[in-house]
Design a protein around this nucleic acid. Structure first.
Lengths: 218, 218
DNA sequence: GGAAATTGTTAAGATTTTGTTAAGATTTAT
DNA sequence: ATAAATCTTAACAAAATCTTAACAATTTCC
């Protein structure tokens, strides 16, 4: 059940939103001011933020700047193109003007919540093809079986091929429960992955970023 | 340079879009019918599709269903909520009604093209580009690997390019635990940084402020 | 100008992190 | 319950990075 934070100071709009979202089977959280929103955001992670711009104390624009890891849909009475552009460029993911159509809002919420990779069937990178359903990897069209964790690691790396994935992030993937995560173990998995890939190609696709984590090469 | 496929049968709108996008530094590709779009999509991969709905032969809605690995922004004269919802739920990522504001369109395009992780920032200063997500430095577009501490130092300097960063501040960055910080060590790191940068440019970007610390030059 | 303090460079040794292997433990499938 | 697959642990080798130390160059101040 996806968690949505509603940031809106107008009580009647706020309540209407809450009802709408709950009927659509979302779990809602309520903030009635910018400061309250900030407090909640520090405490918990949400899947989406619905954000009014004109708020007491801290403005919505300020919140957009700060929040980096959660999609934001701005709900605002400000209809000027300039306001929209500013919000979108500074980090908002969508901008809907009030009054809005309920069904459209729900649709746009779904857009933000659905996985970026719509198909998510195949992840490709050069000679590599990671097949989602069969948990296999094709290297130059040669089939390789990956273990569950090897798959999880490679998937995470291939999802953001330009980005360094920290060791901690990868460890979170591996061990959901263990907080006494073991880097050693991760190292072995990476090593095994590399070895498997190496059987069919000479290029090493996994790069180590010393002290930080790992990344897809190039 | 990002590649955008324009799918639009109205010539005047199509040309206007093409001009707008090229001015905004995108590479444009043109399809004037649904069938043409499908042909191009089979041949090449694009970063974004701008899609009109009412097209000859194959409709825009059909294209939305088929395309799974490229973001789609629908540009349509259909303003009904129902049309919007259908498109968004079946796979479109945004829906803009005609006539549209150019700047808003460009902003919404940027939203679709930017990495999902908003925190992936780039710190730029003249010929230097410090890439947060890949943890590397580009000097005149030449990639340089930085060590963890070199990266931390340069990041701190580039974050406030007008400001002097004290030696103590930099030492805090380097040694989390050691309170017996070593200035000598810092000096070596700075020297190594300068050397690495010097391999691709003659200008020395790190200035020493005697007795205080360091600063980005100019 | 010259002494003292600060900064710059270099290279070697110490330290930390990473890579690989294999054996034992655990989980999963049969 | 047994066998196979997978994961973890441990040990060691290899690599990258950091610190130290020595000395040169520069700046400040008298």
């Amino acid at each position: 059940m996806k968690k949505i934070l509603i940031v809106e100071d107008d009580i009647s709009i706020h309540n209407a939103l809450e009802e709408l979202l709950q009927k659509a089977n979302y779990k809602t959280y309520n903030a009635y001011s910018g400061t309250e929103a900030m407090l909640l955001l520090e405490k918990e992670k949400y899947d989406l933020i619905l954000l009014d711009l004109m708020l007491p104390a801290i403005s919505g624009e300020k919140i957009i700047e700060v929040v980096k890891d959660t999609p934001i849909i701005v709900l605002s009475a400000k209809i000027s193109s300039e306001d929209k552009v500013n919000c979108l460029l500074s980090g908002a993911d969508d901008y809907i003007t009030k009054p809005f159509d309920n069904k459209e809002l729900l649709a746009r919420i779904e857009v933000q919540l659905r996985p970026k990779n719509k198909s998510s069937r195949i992840l490709r990178f050069k000679e590599l093809e990671l097949l989602n359903d069969s948990h296999t990897l094709l290297v130059c069209d040669n089939k390789i079986n990956l273990t569950k964790t090897e798959y999880a690691i490679l998937k995470q790396l291939l999802l953001n091929p330009t980005q360094v994935i920290t060791k901690n992030k990868l460890l979170d993937l591996i061990s959901i429960d263990t907080d006494d995560c073991d880097e050693n173990s991760l190292r072995v998995h990476i090593s095994n992955l590399r070895k498997k890939i190496r059987t069919y190609t000479k290029t090493d696709y996994i790069e180590s970023i010393w002290g930080i984590g790992f990344k897809i090469k190039e």
